[in-house]
Measured scan of single mutants.
Amino acid sequence: DELEKRVKKIARKLNLSLDQVEEWLKRNNNDELVEAVKRLKKK
């Protein structure tokens, strides 16, 4: 979905793993995208 695409884009842009992106999003209080990261990690 759109949020998952955004997460992947962030990960690529910042050259981070999904775990690192998740931490980064949590620090930025971006719950919506944190949920998207969790969905991606399950895939």
Rank of each mutant, 00 (worst) to 15 (best):
R27P: 01
S17P: 06
K8L: 15
V7H: 02
V34P: 01
K8V: 15
A36K: 02
V37T: 06
L18M: 06
V21G: 00
L25D: 00
D31R: 11
K38H: 04
W24G: 01
N15W: 06
K38G: 06
R39K: 08
K5P: 01
E35R: 05
N28H: 13
N29A: 13
D31E: 12
E4Y: 05
L40N: 02
E4S: 06
K42A: 13
K8G: 09
L14T: 03
K9C: 15
V37A: 09
L3Y: 11
E4I: 12
I10M: 06
V34G: 03
E35V: 04
K13L: 14
N15M: 08
K5R: 14
Q20T: 04
E23V: 03
E23S: 05
V34F: 08
R27T: 12
K42Y: 03
E35A: 10
S17H: 05
N28D: 07
E23W: 05
I10A: 03
K41D: 02
K8E: 13
K9M: 13
L25C: 12
K5A: 14
K43H: 09
L18D: 03
K13T: 12
A36C: 08
A36M: 06
K43A: 10
L25I: 04
E23L: 03
V7Y: 02
E2S: 09
L18Q: 01
K13Q: 14
W24S: 00
K42L: 06
K38S: 05
I10C: 14
V34A: 12
Q20A: 09
R12W: 05
L33M: 09
L14E: 03
N28E: 11
D1Q: 10
Q20S: 04
W24Q: 02
R27V: 13
W24A: 03
V21K: 00
I10S: 01
K5M: 13
K26V: 10
L25G: 10
R12I: 12
V34D: 04
N15C: 15
K41V: 07
D31H: 14
L33R: 01
N15P: 01
A11T: 05
V34L: 15
E2Q: 09
L25M: 05
E32H: 09
A11W: 05
K41Q: 10
K26M: 09
